[in-house]
Amino acid sequence: MTNLAKAKSYKSDIKPIWCPGCGDFAVLSALTKAFAFLDLAKQDLAVISGIGCSSRLPAYFSSYGFHGIHGRALPIASGLKLARPELTVIASGGDGDGFSIGGNHFIHACRRNLDMTYIVMDNEVYGMTKGQASPTTQPDWASSKLTPHGTGVRPFQPAAIALASGASFIARAFSGDPNGMTKLIIAAIQHPGFSFIQVLSPCPTFRPEQKLWKHQVEAFPHEPTDDPVKAATRLYTDDGMSSGLIFQSNYPTWNKPEVAQTSVKQFEEEFVV
């Protein structure tokens, strides 16, 4: 019997609040399929997020979860992974949460290379606050009251920044290709180290033009590489609208050092004069 029949058992009774047509549904669905395929025990799985539309994700799983505060999904996930290395930890959120308010954590989580997966649902807009420009918004998008002339600012390049920061698994997925995304999520979970997936996930409400993405997104035109120079070159010539595994390397992960064990009583002795 196919494992995937169990996919829905990874879902909680809580129904997503996302707008109909939102790309995040496909991410939720792909994650449940990946968990089912890998036959992960629900109790050993934790999904952690910050704040935003996509950050509502954890409550929709029947696993453990943490819906924290804006921008801090990665530190919460990192703390959990450090304390409980045997758990499968998934951090998730949106482009504002991950690249703007949480940008510093993104860089350092990539550097630290803890064995966890970070999924950013990128729709180039702040949805929860009703449609403002995000770090990945194109400079000329002028549909927000907050930036009526557009941001005029170069968009953030998630994959390139992940690469420069030392992430050991970098992929781009598209919610319009759920099977391709599921495969990438499975590979990311299996990757020993920090795996980052930028999911192009359209916002039908504030960015209806993103419905066209399904005609624009193509397969990343290269085989995955472990050479950061090659990956960098490819990313700089890429339009950001291709999906696939871009870079995978076996960088060392942060590990707890092996040291001889003692007791707190021993530390007390150190104070004796």
Binding site: I48, G68, S78, L80, N104, Q266
Partner: peptide
């Protein structure tokens, strides 16, 4: 030496939230 972990975080926002994550665990 007593089975615990200390990690230097990237900032105080990270350190408090890492502590939250670990305690959740």
């Amino acid at each position: 030496k007593i089975g615990g972990t200390l990690l230097q975080a990237e900032d105080e926002l990270a350190s408090i939230n890492m502590a939250i994550g670990a305690s959740f665990g």
